[in-house]
Amino acid sequence: MSTREPVPFTQWDEPEGEWTLPGACPVRSNRTLMLEAAARFLFPTVLVFSVYLLIVGHYAPGGGFPGGLVAGLAFVLRYIAGGESEGAEIGSRFVVRPPVLMGLGLLVAVVSALAPVAFGAPVLASAKVTFEIPLVGTVDLVSSLVIDIGVYLLIIGVVLDLLRSLGSGIERDAREAAGEEAGP
């Protein structure tokens, strides 16, 4: 830190990097500044909320499916704000293909459904661990959370795939059609 050049006074408030995830629409004329700015702040917030829904799902309204849908909505928001280049990818450095998320989610769900058999319990049985965490209090950890995590991943994969095929896929089709008309 100490070896850094002093920042010129005129540039002191310029961000050094993309401190929130980018959401800039590539087509300038289609940009909506309010939505872009809102999406930058809402995107992580909504993701955190989706994880909250996932965790409380066993005893309260929520669970893997609503959590996954809410997380999917975060990506939908970013897709609407940022256009096709952003919507379908989770962050610009961490690219996961939606089918992989779906496959992983399904795998986690099925394996956790079969796992109780190894402990001599029936398929889909669940166990509960209760422990005390200082300052937080009593925490109930239910093994069926794992199946919810599987569903959560699966649903995010589905929403991303929908964005990719029905969102940017249609945009691409439309662009190609427009290109053909403009061409020869």
Partner: peptide, 21 residues
């Protein structure tokens, strides 16, 4: 457990075939 396998095994297979795309 055997009764659940005809339902669970194909789902497992589906997950694996997606991953082995």
């Amino acid at each position: 457990t055997l009764v659940t396998l005809p339902v669970l095994l194909p789902i497992l297979g589906a997950a694996l075939t997606v991953l082995a795309a």
